[in-house]
Design a protein around this nucleic acid. Structure first.
Lengths: 339, 339
DNA sequence: TTGAAAGCGGTACCAT
DNA sequence: ATGGTACCGCTTTCAA
């Protein structure tokens, strides 16, 4: 077995050349005699040398590290984003540093510190309430930041998000088109702009298509059980409801549960559309959920491209992706008769 | 605005003390006059200093980084493991370096290189076929490794896995107990030991409880559509089948789809048990899937504890976790009459 | 208790 | 085309 730690110097000594020469051979930089380079590369392979990122980082002031800060890893939502992201940045020689602190707990500064200490070249994060508190701190470091899904100006204005308003509006329009005229919405208590935009989209679609109709919007947690409870109240107090637009797939499933329990037929008596297109939507045995599909991998990919552009000093514009509506079994696709 | 890069030296100069003194103050090491320490800490806060991990790593030969190498981030399976893992290691001052290379493609050595260059203190990985090729390389570096879910001796013998054999056996026994006597299994073509153990558990349970019965095992990909196809063949060629044990939740769902399409009632005419307990199992509207629950977060947590013990030179023993059976709607819980 | 200084493994500038 | 060398920011002996 060879040395556990082969350095440039070791190679240089072995070949009787200078460290600088070996460095250039390894990096493919500078001008070197082809023969010299070849000899070095052979020795490098033979001795099992690989560069020490820390040493390199220390002198170049670059870490080739990208910090990722997302709230949930659970629901496969951010996981897919990260999957797309990882792939892209790796192609550019970057590696992900993954932070996944428990939601809204712990000192945001402390979390950021971890990334600062590592001297990450860029940061990709979801601007949660908690993180927003560290906005000034993050900004002051001057490290490029790409925000995900949402966008807080205090942190910066590079972000990749989804056209929530448009997507929601289209979903609700589709509901109208299929003949629904008593459409309600299940929203989420978070005062997050994404959800707010979905509400606005809902409201605008309704007011355009169903003039005079006063839609009801109820709130629930992003959780099937809680949404079901909310939906039970909604559907009993407003039995005329013939469609529900939910701000998440979890909520949509809660609605469907409630409807089923109340003996409402889906989609004949009640249409349901969710948001996100998680596995739980597509993999329903019966009642495969109609939903607004967030392009998760693409979001990750675009965020990756953006952060790399930023790191390289290129100008970038925010990216807002369309989220197409996927009609499955919880909506009537045939155009029903108008109310 | 202050300097973008405050160093120990800056602090030392400002206070007229030596670098060493500041270093000790920051790290809480060494003996220092309380007043000196206090003054330094104040200046540190004031100037917004934070240590440079690269510099520190260079001299300590420790990176406080743990490399994570898992195949899928998609199905929320590894995501949950990582979630549990991240939380634990962060409490110990470690950060995760996340690698998620496309399954079975790319040079395994190259992937490992990324971690070696970063001088990760420990590695947590799923020993895929691809990674196994780099076993010797990994081993030679002497970096502690904890394997997930499976275990290749060439890589090492620290791992946290699940008692697949036992869990599968218990699941099938439960099927027998509920009165099923024509039990089939959908397995997966991967020659992975985990899946093989599930098959063994299935076979042993069947041969103990249903002497003389020759069970059929068919294979499919870990994919609803493919499993459905396999199940269609199975259920039509063996219409007497009254229960299917699937090696994954996806496969189980495929089976259920096939059954429904063939007009078989679940669970009255066909019981189905899956494996993993993913969201898609628990969040089924109808037919909430009975399944073997892999304790994902705990797997992550235990792997985290193990790698840290390893890093600290403590002795560790492999961990094999139980995976409890969760009975939901796709099994008859009432004890049916024996065949 | 504190300071000076020697590296850790690289990069890059300045000579040669 | 190549060698010598001054750092990068930090930890850690060794002296004082």
């Amino acid at each position: 077995m060879g040395a556990l730690l082969v350095t440039l110097k070791d190679i240089a000594n072995r070949l009787g050349v200078s460290i600088r020469t070996v460095s250039h051979a390894v990096n493919g930089t500078g001008r070197l005699a082809p023969q010299t380079r070849k000899a070095i590369l052979e020795t490098v392979a033979e001795m099992g040398y690989f560069p020490n990122a820390a040493a390199r980082s220390l002198v170049t002031h670059k870490s080739k590290l990208i910090g990722v800060l997302v709230p949930f890893l659970s629901a496969s939502f951010y996981s897919l984003i990260i999957s797309g992201l990882e792939r892209l940045v790796r192609q550019h020689g970057y590696t992900l540093l993954l932070l996944n602190p428990p939601v809204d707990s712990g000192d945001p500064q402390e979390i950021c510190w971890q990334m600062m200490q590592r001297k990450v070249d860029g940061i990709i994060l979801y601007p949660s309430k908690q993180i927003q508190k560290a906005a000034a701190f993050i900004r002051k470091t001057g490290i490029p930041v790409v925000q995900l899904m949402d966008h807080t100006p205090e942190i910066g204005d590079c972000f990749v998000a989804v056209a929530n308003f448009k997507a929601a509006k289209e979903a609700v329009q589709a509901l109208c088109d299929s003949g629904c005229c008593n459409i309600a919405m299940i929203s989420h208590n978070a005062n997050s702009p994404e959800v707010a935009d979905r509400c606005r989209g809902f409201i605008e679609a309704v007011s355009e298509r169903l003039p005079g109709f006063k839609p009801v919007i109820v709130e629930s947690a992003v959780d099937t059980a809680d949404a079901k409870e909310a939906a039970m109240k909604l559907l009993t107090s407003h039995p005329e409801t013939d469609a529900v637009f939910a701000a998440s797939d979890f909520a949509a499933l809660g609605v469907a549960q409630a409807a089923l329990e109340l003996g409402k037929k889906i989609p004949e008596e009640l249409s349901v559309i969710g948001f996100d297109n998680l596995d739980i939507a597509s993999e329903q045995l019966l009642y495969a959920l109609s939903t607004v599909a967030q392009p998760k991998e693409e979001i990750g990919r675009r965020a990756g491209e953006m952060i790399i552009d930023l790191i390289n000093g290129r100008a970038v514009a925010p990216v807002i992706l369309d989220a197409p509506l996927i009609l499955r079994k919880t909506t009537r696709n045939i155009r029903g008769e108008k109310c």
